[in-house]
């Protein structure tokens, strides 16, 4: 009897084996990569190209550095930069201090009170910026029945036109920021404070360190990474401040509250000059990158808690 011998299966080509082994993995990776390419990388590249064009939806015209030249010669652009820098310098450090102080006191509380304050202070973070701005518009009501003016009235101070005059408009937006959302920063600080081992403070107690020394030599340095994170994200967020300006002052009066983000919006969606808006966006991006790098260089710490 003749025995049937099984034919050896031919080895599939390498690309087939690769697809069989890793195909699904790459398919899953493809989805976010495509989203990134279409909705992030492509818009960035096309905005960069647009910044060298006189944009027209039908046919754009290449104008080289004209948008940039115009922008740097425009007084309103420099005014918006100045306003943005003032807003950032006035809000970010003070907001970090306020956040830190609140977190420090909440950290001393019992667990249930910690939860209460964390939830309460985080609440504004989940509210929309538009809603919060509308509330503040009511608070900044320039008549004597406005909330802040009523408060000033108790001390015999005349009503202030908070948002309607150049000298107080930007200050009003800054004030709004101070009393706004510290919730996420507080949660980060509380987590970082909770991560510092108790034994460090006990060792410091034995090492004759006073409460102040423990704060300056242990707590503050070990919270540096959190502070740096809040500083960098705070600066980026305040460079991009838009909603409150749009909702409350529209950049006025007399450009007193025009920030760079609001200027970009105006260039693009009020004057439909998308080329100029793109150029302004890239200057803002460059500015944010430079400031972030400088902050990392000066404040970065390799110890994380």
């Amino acid at each position: 009897m003749q025995l049937a011998t099984a034919k050896p299966k031919p080895t599939p080509p390498a690309y087939r084996r690769f697809l069989r082994d890793y195909g699904w993995a790459y398919l899953f990776i493809l989805a976010p990569v495509l989203l990134f390419l279409v909705f992030t990388l492509y818009p960035v590249i096309s905005a960069f190209i647009m910044s060298f064009q006189k944009y027209n939806i039908m046919k754009s015209k290449w104008i080289g550095f004209d948008n940039y030249t115009y922008m740097f010669q425009d007084d309103i652009f420099w005014k918006s930069i100045k306003n943005t820098v003032i807003f950032t310098l006035a809000t970010v450090p003070i907001n970090i201090i306020i956040t830190f102080i609140l977190a420090f006191f909440i950290f001393q509380m019992k667990s249930r009170w910690q939860t209460f304050f964390k939830a309460t202070l985080y609440l504004p973070s989940v509210a929309s910026g538009v809603t919060i701005s509308l509330v503040w518009l009511a608070m900044f009501d320039p008549t004597s029945s406005g909330l802040l003016n009523t408060f000033l009235g108790w001390f015999g101070i005349d009503p202030v036109i908070w948002l309607g005059q150049s000298k107080t408009a930007l200050f009003s937006l800054i004030l709004m920021s101070y009393l706004g959302s510290h919730g996420s920063g507080i949660i980060l600080y509380l987590a970082a404070m909770g991560g510092i081992p108790k034994s460090l403070y006990e060792a410091a107690d034995i090492d004759h360190a006073s409460g102040w020394t423990q704060f300056t030599k242990i707590t503050w340095p070990l919270l540096k990474p959190t502070t740096l994170y809040l500083l960098v994200t705070g600066v980026i967020t305040s460079f991009q401040v838009f909603i409150s300006v749009y909702m409350m002052t529209q950049g006025g009066p007399n450009f007193a509250t025009t920030t760079i983000a609001y200027l970009i919006y105006e260039s693009a969606f009020v004057f439909y000059d998308f080329g100029l808006a793109s150029a302004q966006s890239f200057v803002l991006a460059a500015f944010i990158i430079i400031v972030s790098v400088v902050q990392f260089k000066f404040f970065s710490s390799d110890v994380e808690y």
């Binding site: 460090l200 060792a203 034995i206 070990l222």
Partner: peptide, 19 residues
């Protein structure tokens, strides 16, 4: 207070100041 007891302690996790 611990500082006034004239003692020194070595902790289980060493409690060295990491920074």
């Amino acid at each position: 207070h611990p500082k006034d007891r004239d003692i020194a302690m070595v902790f289980q996790d060493y409690a060295l100041y990491p920074h």
